[in-house]
């Protein structure tokens, strides 16, 4: 079985987010990029499937700051083929254009399963998985927390609110948007990543032009003005704990 994992890089939310001078996007100079957490989950799910029943895991990621580390880490986890998609991905990009740029890999590589993270926090034109499935005329299941594959079919556990799970069967090839893998992403020691850097090769492909149609332009990007804000408790740990106990008593829970 051949599984294609599509990776996106997203701004690291631990860092301060700074808006560009034009006021419509983040200042790329001051933005630190990391792997989209849900895409990391998709990679883990792909590796778990390979470990259970063999096959090949191919990872494609757009060329951005930090992407080599992401790809070599994927190799250390068990990915077989690493592809860096070269193009301008820090400028005018949206999920519609990214889906179109990823699409040739589906026609060229003919994967049985295409896995992406269920969502990414940095774009406002829909989830990549649904977009690329529609483009490739493949079925799509999102919010997936657990996958098994047998006889050319996948059974995916789709999560609904309230802890309800809908078990769905889909004929392959298909696209799945991963909410969480069967087991949490594995820890990879740095020594193993360094080893992958020496042995694994990153293939490069040039991206096609960015067709943004389907997305809607942002006229302003701002920090939210809160309608309210918490009363902040000051002092050392003892003083804050005492104030909290007083609040708990006043609220009638202590």
């Amino acid at each position: 079985m051949k599984t294609l994992v599509l990776i996106q890089m997203v701004p690291d939310l631990v860092e301060e987010l700074i808006v560009d001078r034009d006021g419509t996007r983040l200042d790329s100079y001051n933005t630190h990029w990391v792997i989209n957490e849900f895409d990391d989950f998709a990679l883990e799910q792909a590796v778990l499937l390979k470990e259970r029943q063999g096959g090949e895991v191919i990872v494609v990621a757009p060329a951005m700051e930090g992407v080599e580390d992401v790809l070599f880490t994927a190799a250390a986890k068990g990915a077989d083929l690493l592809i860096r998609l070269n193009g301008d991905f820090e400028g005018e990009v949206n999920n519609h254009s990214l889906a179109r740029q990823f699409f040739p890999f589906i026609t060229q590589l003919k994967p049985d399963l295409i896995l992406t993270g269920v969502s990414a926090h940095h774009r406002h034109d829909g989830a990549l998985g649904a977009l690329i499935a529609a483009l490739a005329d493949l079925p799509y299941i999102g919010y997936v927390a657990g996958v098994t594959v047998t006889d050319g079919k996948a059974v995916a556990r789709k999560e609904y609110p309230g802890g309800i799970i809908c078990e769905m069967e889909v004929q392959l090839p298909a696209v799945l948007g991963i909410q969480s893998p069967d087991t949490p992403p594995r820890y990879v020691p740095i020594s193993k990543i360094r080893q992958a850097m020496k042995t694994a090769q990153i293939e490069e492909q040039e991206a096609g032009g960015a067709d943004l149609s389907g997305g809607v332009a942002i006229s302003r990007l701002i920090q939210p003005q809160a309608s309210g804000h918490a009363v902040m408790l000051e002092g050392d740990l003892d003083q804050i704990a005492e104030k909290l106990v007083a609040i708990f008593k006043e609220q009638g829970v202590l």
């Binding site: 034109d125 149609s213 389907g214």
Partner: peptide, 16 residues
């Protein structure tokens, strides 16, 4: 979200 995404790409309609 998955309904809207697929329709946007299929029909070429803008999606927010």
């Amino acid at each position: 979200s998955e309904t809207a995404g697929g329709l946007s790409m299929r029909l070429g309609l803008p999606l927010v």
